[in-house]
Design a protein around this nucleic acid. Structure first.
Lengths: 247, 247
DNA sequence: CACTCGACTTCCATCCAGCGGAAGGCGGGA
DNA sequence: TCCCGCCTTCCGCTGGATGGAAGTCGAGTG
């Protein structure tokens, strides 16, 4: 029951959206009751609306009785112009990066105070990776996140530095230390993490500049260790420059 | 009034879904009037509903005034369990295929009488390719489509053979010829196309079997010519077998 | 400059679709 | 057997949704 403050939704539309909003990465399959609870709707109301959504293919009822997002929504979502220019320009370079290293490759942008993963190229279960396309992760615990944060407006940095949640024992949660790291990122041109998001996984990332020089995204690797950091950074920088040129 | 059959939608929910359904691959950005027209709704009604969807982030109004699908829908769509098992199992192999050939690689399944593209790995603009992830294309004009059609139930074949639309001058539109090709596909274990979907592009594809032996998907290449057909087929077959094992 | 046309926005009186409490069915765990 | 949570159906009241109409805006035309 996330803090749905029982805001009296009035329109049907908002109710429908509330139902759909009940889904997230940890809740991809929900029972009718769970949907109603999470959306803050009476069971009978949810029942009616969900039935209609299922009839239209927006939701699908599984044999178990739970509801999941339907193929129709998948189709629809793919039509959204979410940084399509960037993603198209970047895709080939990401594959090159993967081909050259066989490490997991990420393309991410900043979305408010979180990192939004736009693309991911992963191999045969290389290193434990939490992120998926569409994931939002905290900025301070990921390589791409640190890059984007270092180049973010002051107010964003302040907001993020104010809530440094711990993810692993190695997550940097002291604002001062993170500030120092961000300064380093700007100076060095790349960021790293050491098991700060998930144990056994390190990362390197560099910024991607837009045509006007501003940072529009970040590309990064997830690897088991950072011994080859130099080589990895070089590869990323080549790719980042290539993406910029393609934009 | 495109061919919307003017079935009198009654519920708000269906109206909202009609609005969203107005979008497709050729219409990713629509004016309010176009939305209303394509959804078969009075302008005033569409205006109200669209405004609410935009307020919620399901739609986004662009500076030009047109509406596009919003990031929120993108997020939602990615949560849909669309062959996730298959896609996860296949991803690494698709990258291997791309790495070995630098040709565009596709993973597709059959969806009714069309091919649904689940994944695509493309390089630096190799060959003109129409398909994108989420695209649906006719089965008779694509390599993966022919593979899936050859292994589809009789009634599906009949339905498809009944409507062989021409896409290029080389599209196979004679049911008899296609039937013969399908027989070949079963015998040879792979399918090909020669500029049947888009000029300058040929394709090769092989079936992917599930744990129970039935065909669950197809993997294929899009290339400029088929001179290396043997090598390409071998690579695809290795990948297909790997995917089966991973399932 | 006046006029047209198409797209968009706002208004509001009517009315019926949506609402949700309540009761009942179903299954499984103790 | 009882209990409990989940799901489904019912139905009478009501307020949100409806959509025709009128007004605004801007671009193109003669």
């Amino acid at each position: 029951m996330a803090g749905n403050s029982a805001r009296p939704q009035v329109s049907v539309t908002s109710r429908v959206l509330d139902l759909l909003g009940a889904y997230d990465e940890e809740h991809r399959s929900l029972t009718l009751s769970a949907l109603a609870r999470r959306a803050g709707l009476p069971l009978a109301t949810a029942h009616r609306l969900v039935a209609e959504l299922a009839r239209a293919g927006a939701l699908v009822r599984q044999p178990s009785g739970e509801y999941v997002i339907g193929r129709r929504m998948w189709d629809l979502g793919l039509l959204a112009p979410v940084e399509t220019g960037l993603r198209h320009a970047a895709a080939p370079f990401l594959h090159d990066l993967y081909g050259a290293t066989l490490a997991t490759v990420h393309l991410a942008v900043r979305d408010g105070t979180t990192v939004l993963y736009l693309e991911r190229v992963a191999g045969h279960s290389s290193v434990p990776v939490v992120s998926q396309v569409g994931s939002r992760l905290p900025m301070h615990a990921t390589g791409v996140g640190k890059v984007l944060l270092a180049h973010a407006p002051e107010e964003v940095q302040v907001a993020v530095l104010g809530h440094l949640t711990r993810v692993t024992p190695y997550t940097v949660t002291q604002p001062g230390r993170l500030r120092e790291q961000l300064r380093r990122v700007l100076a060095d041109g790349y960021a790293t993490t050491h098991e700060e998001m998930s144990l056994g996984a390190c990362s390197v990332a560099v910024p991607v500049h837009g045509p006007d020089g501003e940072v529009v995204a970040a590309v990064g690797f997830v690897v088991a260790d950072l011994r080859q950091r130099g080589r990895l950074v070089s590869a990323l920088q080549v790719a980042a420059r290539g993406i910029t040129r393609s934009l």
